[in-house]
C-alpha cells in the first residue's frame, strides 16, 4: 500500500514537472487516471514534503491549480545562473490600470480612464500583450464598448488562487 502511495506522489510530481503553467486537479486526475480524492491527498502530501528545508522547490496552489516553482530565498542564485534578467516589472501606469481592471472587472476603457483621469490605450495594449488582461465581451451600452477582465495568467503571475485573494480594498480615509 505504501509503495502504491509513494508511486502516486512520483507520478503527480512528474506531471507537475513537465507543465510550466499550473495544472488543475481535473487535469491531473485525467492524466493520472485517479479519483480526485486520491489526487488531492497526494498533492497535499507532496506540498508538505516540499516544505522541508532540504528542498529548493515548492508546490504552490495558484490560479485554481498546482504549480512547481522555486523557493523565493534562492532567487539571487538563480539570477546568477540565468544572468540578471530583464525584470518584468510593470510601470506605475500599467499597475494602476491593472488594479482597476482586477477589482472592477468587467470594465470598459472609458470607465478606466474616468478613474485614472488619463487615456489608457497604450497601457491596455501592453497589458493585453503580456497576457494579463483580455477582452471579456461587450457592454450593453451605446457603441457596445469592449469590456476587459483579467486572465488566468494574471492569477498565476500574482500568485493568486482566485480573484477573491486580491488584497482587500482599503477604506478611503486610509488610502
Amino acid at each position: 500500500m505504501i509503495t502504491i502511495y509513494q508511486s502516486l506522489l512520483a507520478l503527480i510530481e512528474a506531471l507537475l514537472f513537465v507543465s510550466g503553467a499550473p495544472l488543475t486537479l481535473e487535469e491531473i486526475c485525467a492524466a493520472a487516471n485517479l479519483p480526485s480524492a486520491d489526487a488531492q491527498l497526494a498533492l497535499q502530501e507532496l506540498q508538505r514534503q516540499y516544505e522541508g528545508e532540504d528542498r529548493g522547490i515548492q508546490l504552490r496552489s495558484v490560479a485554481g491549480g498546482y504549480q512547481l516553482c522555486t523557493k523565493a530565498e534562492y532567487a539571487p542564485y538563480i539570477e546568477n545562473l540565468l544572468g540578471r534578467r530583464e525584470k518584468n516589472i510593470l510601470s506605475q501606469a500599467a499597475l494602476e490600470t491593472l488594479a482597476i481592471i482586477a477589482y472592477k472587472q468587467p470594465i470598459t476603457k472609458y470607465e478606466i480612464e474616468r478613474i485614472r483621469g488619463v487615456r489608457v490605450d497604450s497601457v491596455l495594449n501592453t497589458l493585453l500583450e503580456k497576457g494579463l488582461i483580455k477582452e471579456t465581451g461587450r457592454k450593453a451600452a451605446p457603441g457596445r464598448p469592449i469590456l476587459y477582465g483579467t486572465t488566468k495568467y494574471f492569477l498565476t503571475a500574482f500568485g493568486l488562487q482566485e480573484l477573491q485573494d486580491l488584497p482587500p480594498i482599503p477604506p478611503p480615509a486610509d488610502s
Binding site: 514537472f17 513537465v18 507543465s19 510550466g20 503553467a21 515548492q58 504552490r60 504549480q67 512547481l68 516553482c69 522555486t70 523557493k71 523565493a72 532567487a75 538563480i78 525584470k87 518584468n88 516589472i89 510593470l90 506605475q92 499597475l95 494602476e96 491593472l98 488594479a99 482597476i100 482586477a102 477589482y103 478613474i115 485614472r116 483621469g117 503571475a157 500574482f158 500568485g159 486580491l166 488584497p167 480594498i169 482599503p170 478611503p172 486610509d174 488610502s175
Partner: peptide
C-alpha cells in the same frame, strides 16, 4: 476613488516583486 486604486496598484506591485523571486519551469503550457 483614484487614491484607492493608487494604493492597490502599489500593493500589486509589491506582490509582483515577490512573485518574481519564484521561478517556474520555462515554457508555458
Amino acid at each position: 476613488e483614484y487614491k484607492i486604486f493608487r494604493r492597490l496598484s502599489a500593493l500589486l506591485g509589491q506582490i509582483a516583486i515577490e512573485q518574481e523571486k519564484s521561478f517556474t519551469r520555462a515554457g508555458d503550457n
